[in-house]
Design a protein around this nucleic acid. Structure first.
Lengths: 138, 138
DNA sequence: TTTGTGATACGAAAGCATTCGTAAATACGA
DNA sequence: TCGTATTTACGAATGCTTTCGTATCACAAA
């Protein structure tokens, strides 16, 4: 029930997830072609990875036809949220502020991006007008 | 040349690094006591981890006396920067904007923290004049 | 039907992370 | 000095990740 079984993708698995997020439901062939643009990787390696990811519940699989089609089990943002939580806990003592400062601080970020972040901040202000004593659901 | 050999700490190693960052140079005993507050872990397990981290160059060691003293080889912020780069590349396609949006978006952040981020953004504006060829202050 | 192409399934090897048991060295107190 | 406690060193087991070779299966073209 409440406790979700959170998948914790490895680095290779994330590489594959990025392909799936970008291209939508894909065959092993397509995923492997995409990975091969970045580095050398054997077809059966990609296949095996996808099979394992399917067993773990990281991807869903349509095997109604001979050539199977894989798709992410979670949306991009959900997975990214999990990963940020992980990093937050593992390296930033849980402080999102420190993480954001670090992400922006030592990095060249365009003015356009900075403005987008400002918009986000303003939007968060209006969503949560003032310091309400936090009526938190469960 | 610029490119350094960057240590990539594992999750267990990060747990130890957090203790070292918080307490400064520490003995195996102290690190193990701290870790033991959070979970059960054998002394020699912690010892072995620190020895491996030393071999990898993640921590430095003072072994002039019998009881060795370990300390982080990099400062907290440097390591955090490396980790963010890693996550950025692995899960966010390199977009710091998306990472920050995700970190702030699905999280309750106090107005005080939001203001601190705004300050940071303003400071970045003035530090890095601009990339657009207009608004000449001369 | 036979054969070739492309797909999946399976097993196993290699490497790394994590854990701990045991032995050896060192210091300390009685 | 002797025995006990603390510490380091070493080796090994376990489990997970990543990689790939080989076998097998399905389909279609000849």
């Amino acid at each position: 029930m409440g406790k979700k079984n959170v998948p914790r993708p490895t680095e290779s698995e994330l590489e594959i997830l990025q392909v799936l997020w970008q291209h939508g439901p894909s065959t092993v062939r397509l995923v492997n072609d995409e990975l091969s643009k970045r580095r050398e990787v054997g077809y059966t390696t990609t296949l095996k990875l996808l099979q394992l990811m399917h067993e773990k519940g990281i991807v869903d699989r349509d095997d109604s036809s001979r050539t199977h089609v894989y798709r992410p089990a979670l949306r991009e943002q959900e997975t990214q949220g999990v990963l940020i939580d992980r990093l937050l806990e593992a390296a930033f003592g849980g402080s999102a502020l420190k993480l954001v400062q670090q992400a922006l601080g030592n990095r060249k970020t365009s003015r356009e991006e900075l403005d987008q972040i400002r918009d986000l901040l303003d939007q968060m202000d209006s969503d949560q007008p003032d310091q309400t004593p936090n009526t938190d659901p469960k």
